[in-house]
Write a protein that binds this DNA or RNA. Sequence first.
DNA 1: GAGTGGTCTAGACCACTCA
DNA 2: GAGTGGTCTAGACCACTCA
Lengths: 243, 243
Amino acid sequence: MNQLSSDDRLPLYQRLRDQLAEQIANNRWRPGEAIPTEAALSSEYCLSTGTVRKAIDMLVAENILERQQGRGTFIRRPQFQSSLFRFFRFQTAAGERRVPESRILSIEPLLAPSAVSHALGLMPDAPVIRIVRLRLLDAQPVLAEEIWLPRVQFQALLETELDRHGPLLYPIYEELCGQVVAYAEETLTAEAVSDVHARLLQIPANSPVVVIERLARNYAGHPLEWRRSRGHASHFRYSVDIR
Amino acid sequence: MNQLSSDDRLPLYQRLRDQLAEQIANNRWRPGEAIPTEAALSSEYCLSTGTVRKAIDMLVAENILERQQGRGTFIRRPQFQSSLFRFFRFQTAAGERRVPESRILSIEPLLAPSAVSHALGLMPDAPVIRIVRLRLLDAQPVLAEEIWLPRVQFQALLETELDRHGPLLYPIYEELCGQVVAYAEETLTAEAVSDVHARLLQIPANSPVVVIERLARNYAGHPLEWRRSRGHASHFRYSVDIR
DNA sequence: GAGTGGTCTAGACCACTCA
DNA sequence: GAGTGGTCTAGACCACTCA
């Protein structure tokens, strides 16, 4: 037996969804773990199965939960490798899809410039970490990245040899800092490349580049990372279905 | 009383969704019209209201239907003006959002080049219509468009003064040709502008431009229009939420 | 065979719209 | 007040998983 705590003018399925989302944000279950069965939730909250299913349906639609018939309903393990491929087509000479290697150019503690403190929802001049790195495919630079993190949660990164881990940062955030990225918002723009980035990416001056700004959040919706990536337009391709 | 015709191994809600989608594609109801009430559909197909609601939920999620509590469930009227604004931020000097005017540069019957016949699902060298036009804001060109249509359905466009209608083509397709655009797939790329398009758009040689290729389909999923639009990267901005 | 999610029923009652 | 979609119940039975 359990009570739904939130505003009682909201429908029951909405209130159950919110209650579950909050428990997920508070790490009651880890990614990959199962939440209680529908029958268990029905009796725990004194709701009919239809209402419980509707709450779970919402979290499935939000990509937070994943159903597996006959097995259970699981906390979805974020698969952020794929987000690189959402916008860029990186292929090796053989045409296969590969995660570009990572070469970290610098990692240092700084005070947040105003654009960064604003994006991350921090106080002006808050302590942050900036990582600058290149992504390479067949030793060819394909993406230049600038990554900003609040120092409070990510201090541990300054005390480790990042290059010894793989090219993906999010698993490192989880292991070393206990921070799980759950959502992200990405904004695309395009521009003629600056001299600095032309040199980094080894492309001709004035080439068109695509810029991706990403704000990543945890399950509770708090900003964890702000990142800006630039890649040559020739690698860029993105499709949307409308209506 | 009515029968669901499709494959009886599929769930009932799926079969009802398909049956409704087919009737919508066949123009049983026009955009803006209401479909029968949930109660009417329940008794027509001998299904419980829960099952009927689930079928309608699917079509609502697909943006084909629109519910209005207390009024009914309506065929959604496609709002394609907004698709321009999905990718580009066009603002007047005063900062307000406006639909760019249209200046048609040419409209002519042609035989389809292979890329076009392929995109539209036509036979090679099928008869098509090509429209070339500019979109302008404050007399300044902001978008260059190339539009390809199968001549069979769109012959009427060759026999009218297109510039006398508004800047939006889709309402014209509907009025003059009885063709309703229901879905579209858009693919974004970026490149350095060609000399031809630099002149058309009045921008410096080698400027970065964003290219949008759009394939538009009717409710039955058949391709109606293939379009390629180019605009200066400085107007381009696009956001996505992930996970 | 026990346990899971998936489909479906036959309602009751509520919130909203509109004449 | 009649008619619409929105919420919710208390199940039954099915399809699938796993030991």
